[in-house]
Amino acid sequence: MIHEVDKVLKGLLSGGALAGTGVEIAFEAPTRDWAARRNSPTIDVYLYDIREDVKRRERGAIAVKDERGVVLKRQQPPRWFRLSYLVTAWTKQPQDEHRMLSAVLATLLPREVLPPDELTGALAELGLTVPMTIAGLQTDARSFAEIWSALGGELKPSLDLVVTAPFPAFPEYEVGPPVTEGAGVRVRGTDGTLDDSQRRDHQPRHFTRTGARRRPGSVGGATSTGAQPE
């Protein structure tokens, strides 16, 4: 799932305001050694945090239906995870880096959600929209200063990109076909065999809309009380 989000982000950033600029899109940790090896303008999208969005957790099972609406399988709902990326621009001039960050904002700000037709792999098969926020208020305890300190680099302008993606981690299980006939009963003879035993079919029970059973031959509201089956 994470690598599919990376692929979508690379496609978005390679187009939009950065299309045709020759800017490279990287996903490596922006350490000192990595920065020293940069010889071309680069947008780095570093995944620094992964955690579940527990507010989106659902219980129960989801029905998987065919084109006729018949339930074929059931599966557990996906779990949603917040993928936090540190987006930075790398070139020789700070002004050029600022322009590149502006281009990232211009590309991602209009994309508050990613529709299924822009996703790939298992993400697209789920048919769910994926929320995305750029440069929002940071609510995690970890600050950017701590992140840069852990990377061994110097603090520089960056954008916080958060993609909340579903993770289809639970298998599907088959369900039985729908019941279309009532149960049948056959009684064994005294010798224990079913010879000459007729099958008695039991029709499915039905209720009236009011929950009361209509008496045979009754008219209008002449019904017995209680929710009795026919």
Rank of each mutant, 00 (worst) to 15 (best):
R186A: 15
T31H: 05
K7N: 11
Q228P: 09
D53I: 09
P30T: 02
E4L: 06
R32S: 11
R79I: 00
S197F: 04
L47D: 03
V71T: 12
H202A: 09
V54L: 09
V54S: 14
K92R: 13
V54W: 07
R99W: 07
H3W: 14
E58D: 13
K92L: 08
S218M: 11
M100N: 05
R205D: 09
V187F: 15
G127A: 06
T31A: 06
V5W: 00
G127L: 07
T21W: 09
W90V: 06
I134E: 06
D195A: 15
A89L: 10
G152Q: 02
E172A: 08
P78I: 00
P115E: 11
Q95H: 11
G136D: 14
T190W: 15
T31K: 07
A141F: 05
G184V: 12
S218G: 15
V64D: 00
A145W: 10
V175D: 04
A150F: 07
A145G: 12
D49Q: 10
P204F: 00
R186W: 10
T133C: 05
P204C: 04
V104H: 01
Q228Y: 13
F170V: 00
Q76K: 09
D66L: 07
S40C: 07
V23I: 06
G221D: 15
G226V: 08
G192Q: 04
M1D: 08
E52W: 08
S14N: 14
P131V: 07
F170S: 10
T129L: 10
A106P: 03
H98I: 06
L159T: 01
D117S: 10
T223A: 13
A165V: 04
L12T: 08
P30N: 02
L13H: 03
L83E: 01
Q198C: 02
G226A: 10
R111E: 13
S158H: 02
V179E: 10
F27P: 03
R188T: 14
P166C: 01
D117A: 08
P41L: 02
Y85F: 09
S149Y: 11
G184P: 04
V185Q: 06
V70F: 10
F27Q: 05
L109W: 11
P110D: 03
T120K: 14
S40R: 15
P204Y: 05
A89S: 10
T190I: 13
F167W: 06
K10R: 15
D195C: 14
A89E: 03
D160Y: 05
S84R: 15
R79Q: 04
L151N: 02
E230K: 14
P94L: 12
E112Y: 06
A103T: 07
P30F: 00
